[in-house]
Design a protein around this nucleic acid. Sequence first.
DNA 1: TTGACATATTCCCATATGGGAATATATTGA
DNA 2: TCAATATATTCCCATATGGGAATATGTCAA
Lengths: 109, 109
Amino acid sequence: MARAPTTADAFNAVAEPRRRDILNYLALAERSVSEIVDALEMEQPSVSKHLRVLKDVGLVDARREGRQMLYRVNALAIRPLWEWTTTFERLWRHQLVKVKENAEKKTNL
Amino acid sequence: MARAPTTADAFNAVAEPRRRDILNYLALAERSVSEIVDALEMEQPSVSKHLRVLKDVGLVDARREGRQMLYRVNALAIRPLWEWTTTFERLWRHQLVKVKENAEKKTNL
DNA sequence: TTGACATATTCCCATATGGGAATATATTGA
DNA sequence: TCAATATATTCCCATATGGGAATATGTCAA
């Protein structure tokens, strides 16, 4: 078996930095493909291919307006990632407390 | 260029479901490799290889105790993923409000 | 030293990747 | 119908993958 396809789920789709760039940009507003191309300075076919992956996993929705395709984020599809990460929140808070304690110990020497 | 290596960053490392399984299990307590193997019913070499990836990106730390290697989560390394997802939190809350409104409209018909 | 246990690494392979280049498809206006 | 614009798809390729199988490395106990 090889690595899971990028379209397997949101976790895989989001592993690619350029796709996160696109999502970040779309978080501001609905945008056409060419707006994304201009804003992120990517090749048009590359943007279309990334959008295809994002759409396949439900991270974006699209609608046609004339010759343009307007894409927008489907934020609800990002929520499962957020939910997974929050299961570790208690742990990193605990780590931060310990880091702070160590810093204070050093200061009191 | 091919896909970014799984060791490129936490986003890539975490895209693999078995690695998330391992992290979930380690969230409970520090564990040896064989405990992971038994608990998750995976092959030992597979677990070692996944742990290697997780360690390379800093998602786990390890220490030796006799013949065993004890692994634990480094939750702070998960925080950047959480931070990225939270930038969309406002958006999905807004989506959920709209979903609720539509549901209420239907009820009032 | 030797054997047993615990873990890590190597080799092989089918599969998927993202970028570049070229081309196909869709929509509009003349 | 045809040309122009906007997007999508296809083909090619170097690269990395995860699993399986085999083997190497490390540590302890006798």
